[in-house]
């Protein structure tokens, strides 16, 4: 990644749901640049467009107007499958609700992204075990989500996000369902991924305590970025 090309770049991005009178501007002209290797926290009141922006960053969604560029690629111009390939190769997701496959072992959950890459079973197992080790769950490989605590489930989800060695981990309220102590453990894990492996981490949170782990805080208000807060945190 060259310094001149930001990893993530929003150029007057708009996202409009519905039409006419009922139209909701979830994103209303957002300009944003995130460099590779950053740890960014996104904050803001409910309904301010944080998740909408995260879906955009994660190439799950495309702008109604404006441009979103991922490593210089205009994502809005890509087909569904091309975006899927971007996600597969460069992005990892961590969700508030963990989103693990139920009745499926931790190991198999972590293997999932590699399956779609067509990786042979043996190599897949190895990488998945390594990712589980990385999040400190090597002993729980055969446990299913229902046999794991919330914090452990989120660790499995993080292992799944990093198993394919992504450039970016996108985490929408990763600690939203967890108690403070567990939240801190998860944050420590994200920080170490960012620091030790150089993974760009973008995280939505409502809690200032958690946002404090990030290198930069971006605040959304009514589908726009609050300029004062962003500058302040950018130092």
């Amino acid at each position: 990644m060259q310094e001149t090309t930001p990893l993530i770049e929003f150029d007057a991005v708009e996202k409009v749901y519905g039409e006419g009178e009922a139209a909701v501007h979830a994103l209303d002209g957002v300009d944003l640049k995130i460099q590779a290797g950053e740890f960014v926290a996104i904050m803001g009141p409910s309904g301010s467009g944080k998740s909408t922006a995260m879906n955009m960053i994660g190439c799950l969604d495309t702008p109604t107007a404006g441009h979103y560029r991922f490593a210089g690629i205009d994502v809005g111009a890509l087909s569904r499958d091309q975006r899927a390939l971007l996600r597969r190769n460069y992005l990892g997701f961590v969700f508030q609700g963990f989103n693990l496959l139920s009745r499926t072992s931790a190991l198999e959950n972590v293997e999932l992204p590699l399956i779609y890459r067509g990786m042979p079973t043996k190599q897949r197992r190895l990488l998945a075990m390594r990712a589980l080790q990385r999040v400190g769950l090597a002993q729980r490989e055969n446990h299913t989500p229902s046999q794991l605590s919330g914090g452990q489930q989120q660790r499995v989800a993080i292992a799944r996000a990093i198993v394919s060695d992504p450039a970016v981990v996108v985490a929408d309220e990763p600690t939203g369902n967890l108690d403070t102590k567990t939240s801190r453990e998860i944050m420590d894990l994200l920080v170490s991924l960012n620091r030790d492996q150089g993974i760009t981490v973008i995280m939505v949170t409502h809690e200032a305590d958690m946002a404090a782990y990030a290198g930069r805080i971006i605040r959304f208000v009514d589908g726009r970025i609050d300029p004062t807060v962003s500058q302040e945190a950018a130092q």
Binding site: R87, N89, L91, L112
Partner: peptide, 16 residues
């Protein structure tokens, strides 16, 4: 549906 959502999010192609 949720399982399908997870698979699509982590990079499954429509064909897969």
């Amino acid at each position: 549906t949720r399982e399908i959502g997870i698979r699509l999010a982590i990079g499954a192609l429509a064909n897969q």
